[in-house]
């Protein structure tokens, strides 16, 4: 369902749990679908012994993709105009992620009513793993 500007106010929030106990298999699934087969994400031997990380870790784009799901569930299908993030911490197998969109502004842009959202995804320790924004068309 699309959002209505008349029913939105600055500071409104929408949250979703993106994943509980992230599985290595989901990271493999993302590698296969996206085509990004960097061994850092799926190859524990390479990642620990050659790249010297404690374990494989998720593609930033997997976290962004799941965060995008929260955003589109909130703003509705086909409404997204802009979506951007910074990856601020790595996401590891076993992590539980929650994402929140916060209404920052309801405005007019190119003759359309849009909502500007702050987007943040945090892990089970409260650390921010994704920090970003989204802009979506809303009904007047």
């Amino acid at each position: 369902m699309a959002l209505k500007a008349s029913e939105l106010k600055v500071g409104d929030t929408y949250s979703e749990c993106l994943v509980e106990d992230l599985k290595r298999t989901q990271i493999v699934q993302y590698a296969g679908a996206s085509g990004d087969y960097n061994p850092l994400h799926t190859d524990e031997v390479f990642t620990t012994q050659v790249a010297k990380y404690p374990s494989v870790f998720a593609h930033g784009m997997l976290s962004m993709g799941m965060t995008g799901r929260m955003v589109t569930n909130y703003v509705g299908d086909g409404r997204l105009k802009k979506f951007g993030v910074r990856f601020t911490n790595q996401v590891w197998p076993g992590d539980t992620l929650n994402a929140t969109a916060t209404v920052e502004e309801i405005t007019e842009e190119d003759g359309e009513t849009v909502v500007n959202l702050k987007v943040e995804t945090t892990n089970q320790d409260g650390a921010t793993v994704i920090s970003g924004y989204a802009c979506a068309r809303v009904d007047a």
Binding site: P39, L80, G84
Partner: peptide
């Protein structure tokens, strides 16, 4: 070696003209 292959991803931004 920190990046393994191709470095790490720091930011990503999209602008949708249509989907």
């Amino acid at each position: 070696g920190g990046g393994g292959g191709g470095g790490l991803h720091a930011e990503q931004h999209y602008e949708y003209h249509r989907h």
